[in-house]
């Protein structure tokens, strides 16, 4: 690799890729939390775009930067809260509720901006926050923030009561309820975490890009985040996932997309390679799972059984 492309061995190349991948890492951490609790959050792509555009517009309107960030993060909380309430109290499946939110948020953004890009809001300070300006060699603010978020996420999932509850609800919702876990609240909390991280990622992205296009900014990021989380060991059926793994997954996806341009291969092939590598990574992960359980009783993931109809505890 290093021989074929000088960029790949240079610190500059890695700096560029890590700086690019922080936006995916942030939403992948949120996605991991949601996947562990047994949900999925497809709304994060549009959530990022709305946060980015809102940050830019409020700055243009002369609102102080700190206040802008607080407002945008609160919007992220609200989005997550609505997702969570739709899922737990209205009873809409996770996939559909957040898909509706994905579509609706993009719509709100398009109506509000009338399709016009938001630009001209970037100041030097915002450039520093967004990571387009370094604060030290090979170091940007988003990198530090992302590192902090990743550590906080790991600690939350491993060492806090909420974290244990998230695993419990994702592992077996009914059992968790019987144990006294307030499953609905736990699930709502997960969607709020994901919403806030999407808003944070959007704030940083606006500073990095210096322009927000309502129709295209962060479009499709939701599937990248799911792919990153799953590559990092999260299970789509809940109960399992790793923040650290999700970070590696997000970096791997960014590396893949950048590799081909360094190799001067026709960029049209990059989609093919991304797909093949997602498959390979999934295979490796699967092989790892098989090896890990070889000694004892082999645990094969059960195919989804339907919920028993007779007893119908209000599952999440």
């Amino acid at each position: 690799m290093g021989v074929a492309s000088p960029g790949f061995t240079s610190l500059n190349g890695w700096y560029f890729m890590v700086n690019e991948s922080v936006f995916i890492i942030l939403i992948a951490v949120g996605m991991t939390v949601v996947l562990i609790v047994g949900g999925i959050d497809l709304s994060v792509g549009s959530g990022m775009a709305v946060a980015a555009a809102l940050s830019g517009q409020l700055l243009l309107d002369g609102v102080p930067m700190a206040l802008v960030f607080v407002i945008v993060l609160l919007v992220g909380v609200a989005v997550g809260l609505v997702n969570g309430l739709l899922i737990t109290y209205v009873g809409i499946p996770d996939f559909i509720a957040t898909l509706a939110m994905l579509t609706a948020l993009r719509g709100v953004l398009l109506i509000w901006t009338q399709g016009n890009p938001v630009l001209g809001y970037v100041t030097h300070a915002y450039g520093v926050i967004g990571g387009s300006t370094k604060i030290a060699p090979y170091l940007t603010v988003p990198m530090l923030l992302t590192l902090a978020v990743a550590i906080a996420g790991s600690v939350l999932l491993r060492y806090t009561v909420l974290g244990r509850h998230i695993h419990a609800v994702g592992g077996d919702g009914d059992a968790a309820v019987l144990m006294g876990v307030r499953a609905k609240r736990v699930k709502i909390a997960c969607y709020v975490i994901s919403g806030v991280l999407a808003a944070l990622s959007g704030i940083l992205l606006a500073g990095y890009l210096s322009q927000v296009s309502p129709g295209t900014t962060a479009s499709g990021y939701e599937l990248m985040a799911v792919a990153a989380a799953v590559l990092g060991g999260a299970s789509l059926s809940g109960g399992r996932g790793s923040v650290f793994g999700a970070c590696l997954g997000a970096i791997a996806l960014t590396v893949i997309t950048n590799l081909l341009s360094w190799w001067n291969v026709n960029p049209n092939w990059s989609d093919v390679l991304v797909g093949v590598l997602i498959l390979l990574a999934a295979l490796l992960q699967r092989a790892g799972v098989i090896v890990a359980t070889r000694g004892g009783q082999t645990k094969r993931p059960r195919l989804a059984d339907p919920q028993p109809v007779t007893r119908a505890p209000q599952s999440v």
């Binding site: 792919a227 797909g275 093949v276 997602i278 498959l279």
Partner: peptide, 25 residues
């Protein structure tokens, strides 16, 4: 191969899109 439906079809979404892009230049 026993891989998750979501991941396999997400991968083929990407692969097939790339193939079509290459095919149509």
């Amino acid at each position: 191969l026993g891989l998750a439906d979501f991941i396999v079809t997400l991968a083929t979404l990407s692969v097939v899109q790339g193939i079509v892009e290459v095919m149509t230049a």
